[in-house]
Amino acid sequence: MIDREQVLHVARLSRLRLSEDEVAKMAGELSSILEHVDRIAELDLGDVQPTSHVVELENVLRPDEPRPSWPRERVLEPAPETADGAFRVPSPQADS
């Protein structure tokens, strides 16, 4: 029920390059998982509130007090590519 086009669309949203084999395999696997998941479509959940969190906390906030930032050498040290004190990335395609 998930077809090739949908797999490609979701892969693009996820920024994952999939090989042709992976696309085919993914379509089958996701379909069988979702088929199982679809059992919840039969439940009557009309007036049920969604739960996004089980903790019953509110307003957990932090005072506006500066803390030392990180030395720049350490910030940049693990980066794959840097230049001029910044992280260097391939340019986004025009306007994307």
Partner: peptide, 25 residues
């Protein structure tokens, strides 16, 4: 995403999306 601290797959200059997709793949 291959920008700050993780691995980055080689990808062409000027192709950010390819860099993302290859790195994550």
């Amino acid at each position: 995403d291959g920008v700050r601290y993780d691995m980055r797959a080689p990808a062409g200059e000027g192709d950010l999306i390819a860099m993302y997709e290859e790195t994550r793949a």
